[in-house]
Amino acid sequence: MRDNSITGVPVVSDKRLLGIVSMDDIIRALDFGHINETVEHHMTKNLIVLEDDMPVSFAISYFDRYSYHRFPVLNKHKELVGMVTTRDITTRLLLEINHEVEHLERMNRSTKVTDGLERDVHTFAILKHDFENAGFASTEIKKRLKQSGIAPATIRRAAIASYELEMNIVVHSDGGRITAEYGPDEVVILSEDSGPGIEDVDKAMEQGFSTANEWIRSLGFGAGMGLPNVKSVSDEFSIESSANGTTVRSVIGFDTVK
């Protein structure tokens, strides 16, 4: 128990579970001078077990109902396949909650009224050098357009524009956000970052010009094609940049054939 930092050990005969020796059993055996006797006389035999295909919610309600800190898990042949502890469940739940929160934090939904029409607006927070989650905003935008039954060629244009803008924030900026505004005839993709700004916007629009460093290039980014790609798939394109940040606006019309 000490070596493995655990508080209970299952006792098995050929994979069949006979009982569990817990810290409590040991203290009792010490107390009554039975410490040199075999475990089978002092282990807990009336066990509550879980089956390996039970949902985790069952395990949670078992922890609620009984005072045990661990349950042995058996397969359908009644063989011991593992133990589940309250710690296993708390750890996993925390991970899942964090994952959900991160997902929610990255995307913010709202609506906005333009020309008497209610438009969905989704905002995605993008962090500097967050290659791990890069592509999240564009994947969500693509999903949303697919659900609305937009033509695949149009979705592809929106995916290209949003991905390149998203990558630009990841690679070049101090962080920013992508906003997608869904209208009846177009999607407006807005990229805003908080600096440091593009020194020469005309040069940045040239194919092959890039300020990316070596390690970013080694990942396959920084080929100097991002902004030109965005422009070529957009029906409307504008860019403004200062030391306070860069704003790019790309409009992808649903009826345009490109």
């Binding site: 791990e132 890069a134 592509g135 564009s138 592809r156 995916a159 980014f221």
Partner: peptide
Amino acid sequence: ITIQAHKNTVAVASLIG
């Protein structure tokens, strides 16, 4: 066909089908 063996390659591949 590439040597870019990381997650971002999958994002690109997925976005353009």
